[in-house]
Design a protein around this nucleic acid. Sequence first.
RNA 1: GCCGAAGUGGUGGAACUGGCAGACACGCAGGUCUUAGGAACCUGUGCCUUCGGGCGUGGGGGUUCAAGUCCCCCCUUCGGCACCA
Length: 837
Amino acid sequence: MSETQDHHQGNEDAATYDVEAVQAKWQPVWEALEPFRADDEVVRSGAREKKYALTMFPYPSGDLHMGHAEVTALHDVLARYWWQRGYEVMNPMGWDSFGLPAENAAIRNDAHPADYTYGNIDTQLASFKKYAVSFDWSRRFNTSDPEYYRWTQWLFLRMYEKGLAYRKNSPVNWCPNDQTVLANEQVVDGACERCGAVVTKRELTQWYFRTTAYAQELLDSLDDLEPTWSTKVVNAQRNWIGRSEGAHVDFVVDGRDEPVTVYTTRPDTIFGTTFMVVAVDAALADELVTDEQRAAFEAYREEVRRETEIERLSTDRPKTGVDLGVTATNPVTGQQIPVWATDYVLADYGTGAVMGVPGGDQRDFEFATVMGLPIVRTTQPPADFEGDSYSGEGPTINSPAAGVEVALDINGLPVAEAKARTIAFLDQQGTGRGTVNFRLRDWLLSRQRYLGAPIPIIHCPVDGEVPVPDDQLPVELPALRGADLKPKGVSPLGGADEWVNVSCPKCGGPAQRDTDTMDTFVDSSWYFLRYCSPHDHTQAFDSDLVNMWGPCDIYIGGDEHAVLHLLYARFFTKALRDMGLLSFDEPFSAYLSQGKVINNGRKMSKSLGNGVSLGGQLAEFGVDAVRLTLVFASPPEDNIDWADVSPSGALKFLQRAWRLSGDVASAPGTSPDSGDIALRKLTHKTVHEAGQLVEVHRFNVMVARTMELVNATRKAIDSGCGPADPAVREAVETVAILLSLVAPYVAEEMWERLGHEPTVARVGWPVVDEALLVQDSVTAVVQVKGKVRARLEVSPDISEADLEAAALADEGVVRAIDGAAIRKVIVVAPKLVNIVT
RNA sequence: GCCGAAGUGGUGGAACUGGCAGACACGCAGGUCUUAGGAACCUGUGCCUUCGGGCGUGGGGGUUCAAGUCCCCCCUUCGGCACCA
């Protein structure tokens, strides 16, 4: 584009501007001006109101790509709009530079993670600056900087003190490729969220955050977030937390003092219970099994342990299990039932034991059928139902078997009432109670990988787990230069003998550091707090500043983090609030999830060879055109198929807008008052609507309105009021300001050509003259039997009677009525008349 | 199976509380100016039409003077959850 020559005859202003030159010209000017530096004092003094605009910080695993370009382009529209509206906007950026994505990329490139990571950060920083996002670079940090992770470790210790961080032995998700454990949230359809390898289970002692302590609040607050958060994400979190209401029911098992408690959501089906099933991998099963059945049980357990998660999750394979040889007593009916072990019951949900009701539950039905256990119907099937295994909804027909006397009568009651009565009965008997269960599990945070914050705990043979004292933080990651950092299943930190072997802070005896590192998501669970006081060396964050800037007024990112980062950050916020470190309940007041950039209907990927390089697009069309393309393509939430959009069209439009600035023939500062009224009205209407559209995140329509203004201004110059009319200057200046949200280089260039100083980004939103929003005439539609037959130009304050009369007098309307009798006339002044014959 | 979102021209997408469906673009067609056009500008572009008009927002019903928008049923696509008892 830069070599395009101007050969246009007759109009010297119809040149095209040099994209590269304009970018090179303004970048250093902005660098010097720092127009987007957020000042704490301005907010503290009340001089301006604050806005906190946050967009997800990148992993430094390469240069920026199309996805980054999209999210920052969208985000920047809002941030720059808020500046123009007179807010003090904090719009920080940094790097999420610990963790698997960066580490794996480094290993692939045969580099030490630290070198590789920091090299990429430099590359991305330069790209961001060229891309001209309104970030406040004075606040940047990297989560892998010791000054940052010192405080990540500090926060871990506060969690530990509160019992919110703990260690336990449990079967955990294991990624055989990345050679590390994974949180539940990082397992998608039985595979590793990062690399796609099939996840297996391992029994390991690992660190957890007690997210379940906040399950109910995390769920409840979603109601408040619903109006301003992406519905997709709210829905995903609700499903993930997975609240269910039911009951705990105690079954006495022979040969055991403590009863075995089961969890059920349908206590009303207790009369249909014909067996009990226990999760085969739960300690309870091992405890209950009789000596005679032990061999069979252990063989079965071995078989189950060899299954992958994917096999285990499959619901369409036949049920398996083994009889544990003991019997349990139904606390309501007193009936004796067998106890089995199976893999379809989960050890870590509910109590790991279930009452088997084959007449009411599909899975129990399948199990009973395979094992030859009795089936008792519990609900009334529809009249046309044939068979024995109906398990749908319907009035309960639960009642005790013949000869059993029970004081609980729920036969024929609706399910909800039957449940309530059964729970009340169990409660009174002392054999059960109503309870609530969540699908959400605690967050497994240890990782057996190098690139992360070391867990600041020392294991002492005498004192057990001993926290590293605060004044010894950070526990710095050993450099391990020259060591093999490839994943091997145990943390590479274990190989750093000098680092590992320390004396116990309590007793001074020989002890070892915990060698695992923290999940990257720990780093990102509080980074938005650190931005408020990024260079404070005395504390993780300044609570006063956090309470002043927070919570974030907008957060934009991808919904792949719906149940990961977004849930963890919410958990951290609530936990820190309860520690008195901050005063709000939720970190992100509004969340906008942006779609993906795809190509030809498919995700961009190396293997498909359909990747579109951001650098290539920027070189061909320039920053502004790429940004405009991304913003204009669709609503922010929708995916953008690069094959469907036109960056060349965007560039064409920008050139068109730019050309207007060369046509303006009035002097800077000319009052628009005497300008062409029609153009002035359009200008003011456009500003008014554009503001509203940005507020509701309809950025694509905002661009469309700007295009209309450009088109109308072009017409006004060429065949209307002419280039010297003050309204033309007003319109073009408005275009420059509107474009400053999307295409900062062109906007700045236009602003200069209009005779102004930089920077257009901070000149302020144009003031709308309300008088100019009033229209002199509107088009009223006249319908006959719902079909449009005429359009009338009428005054906006025409009376209903006058409008009706005008409509009935219209020639086309008379023809359409064709002499038929008028039954009814609906008049909605000044917009519409509908005549019914 | 459970929960949620969405279906509008050849394409991306507009349409505020029910009130002119298809804004703004892309693409395509024609034109003006040009040595030239992958430049600029102008015109046209939902479908059908006997040029009166008729039909059109996934399908079928309904409410209403009036439905892309509200209600019921169905179909399709996408997303979340899922042997969670």
